[in-house]
Design a protein around this nucleic acid. Structure first.
Ligand SMILES: [Zn+2]
Ligand SMILES: [Zn+2]
Ligand SMILES: [Zn+2]
Ligand SMILES: [Zn+2]
Lengths: 165, 165
DNA sequence: TTCGGTTTTGTTACTCTATACCATGATGCC
DNA sequence: GGCATCATGGTATAGAGTAACAAAACCGAA
């Protein structure tokens, strides 16, 4: 009998995703402890729910999942938790989907860059060397001071290309 | 007495913006003619309204402006026009604002890159040399086929930096 | 330990953004 | 004219996000 490991709605990669979740939570607790930020039960739970897949999840989907726990939550509950998690760099917002996804490397603040698959829905955070810096410096040439960046590439992951082929 | 030229809600640059609008419309008509795309009255009007400022404008703001003309429009009217205009590359969607802005160079399809000022709201479309290509090639290394990109930098334009200083 | 300020959560109601669906009208080709 | 295709009208509803205020939990100091 298979374990109770939860999977993405459109599962794709075969890794043991339970590890991703527990690892993410552990790291979140570590960074919050170090920073003196309060990872309350609600916030921890929302983070866990966001991490249930590698596909970005909408705030209202998080809300539903919360309610299935028996919690009596309303939209502000979720949005406030997400706001905190974003401030701490524990989740990123995917602008082109109005959705949220866990950050695999929260210890160090960074400009997020994503590959977003239109087939399976997964979001893969990447780092393109020098890209963030290039944006900042080009903006500076135009007198513009960059405070935050959004870099999202939409397309098909290798697996979805094969399926569609 | 000043001309009837309309300005941005938070006007900023002193150029004669009426030129921007008429130029944009002229170029839109040209590209549509060449492509056999039908720039109908509605679509032309929506494009005009989007161009009323250099700040991205929400679909519902366009809707309001349309109605002030006496037109009896509903949301789908606006969204359909915007969809057409985006297909033709005449407007771009600013994902981080759920809003739309006219493209200053619609003749040639391209991945849009924007500087978005949090002070005045203006969006400046830029082209960072090699950036789009770099994203595509790094994605390709990971087996990911990029179909579209979103690059948005948020911060303060030079003018707003001075004001805030 | 009790007080009082700060932070977090609860609750309600609402605004803004976007799309599904079906009907109607225009356009242009044969 | 007949017919397919494209564009619009119009209603209803789904989805995303926030304002505002009240209650509760937390925490450091008196
Ligand atoms: Zn995983
Ligand atoms: Zn995929
Ligand atoms: Zn202008
Ligand atoms: Zn500005």
């Amino acid at each position: 009998m298979p374990p109770t490991t939860k999977r993405s709605a459109r599962p794709h990669s075969d890794h043991d995703h339970a590890n991703c979740v527990t690892d993410a939570i552990a790291r979140a607790e570590a960074v919050c402890a170090e920073r003196g930020a309060r990872l309350t039960e609600n916030r921890r739970r929302v983070l866990e729910l966001v991490w249930q897949s590698h596909a970005p999840v909408g705030a209202y989907e998080v809300l539903e999942r919360l309610r299935k726990d028996g919690t009596h939550a309303a939209p502000p509950t979720v949005y406030r938790a997400l706001e905190f998690l974003m401030e701490q760099g524990l989740v990123h917002r995917i602008e082109s989907r109005n959705a949220f996804v866990g950050c695999p490397q929260p210890e160090q603040r960074h400009a997020a860059q994503y590959l977003l698959c239109e087939g399976c829905g997964d979001a893969v955070e990447i780092e393109i060397g020098g890209l963030a810096r290039k944006i900042v410096s080009r903006a500076a040439e135009l007198g513009f001071a960059v405070a935050a960046q959004t870099v999202e590439a939409h397309g098909l992951c290798s697996r979805c290309q094969q399926i569609g082929a």
